[in-house]
């Protein structure tokens, strides 16, 4: 839970999101039970207004650089502005694991 909490609090304080969901998807992958290696972040923030996707993702990656360097192996990001979220509140499901992380 420690990494999950760290991710949530860092994103909270940096992006002041109007919606934030951090999902530990590690159970879907080829890792020991209780691992914190694969995450999905769904974040809605005013800070994304006027920024292309790549810039939004880079910002999230930068805020979570420490986690990404120390054990977080996959980070899926859905970053929307409040108006985009209003027009399409869908949550894309992550694809199934194919075993590659064990190699």
């Amino acid at each position: 839970m420690a990494i999950s909490r760290a991710i949530t609090s860092k994103l909270q304080s940096y992006f002041l999101p109007s919606f934030l969901d951090v999902v530990n998807e590690s159970y879907m992958h080829n890792v020991p039970k209780g691992s914190e290696t694969h995450f999905k972040v769904f974040i809605v923030s005013e800070k994304f207004v006027g920024k292309p996707l790549i810039k939004r993702h880079r910002e999230v990656n930068t805020v979570l650089a420490e986690e990404l360097q120390s054990g977080v192996h996959a980070l899926s990001i859905i970053a929307k502005t409040p108006s985009q979220w209003e027009s399409d509140p869908s949550f894309v499901k992550s694809p199934p694991c194919l075993g590659g992380s064990k190699l």
Partner: peptide, 12 residues
């Protein structure tokens, strides 16, 4: 991860 004919990761 893997090759297009046989990817080894769902994201790939």
């Amino acid at each position: 991860k893997g090759v297009p004919e046989e990817p080894r990761c769902g994201f790939s």
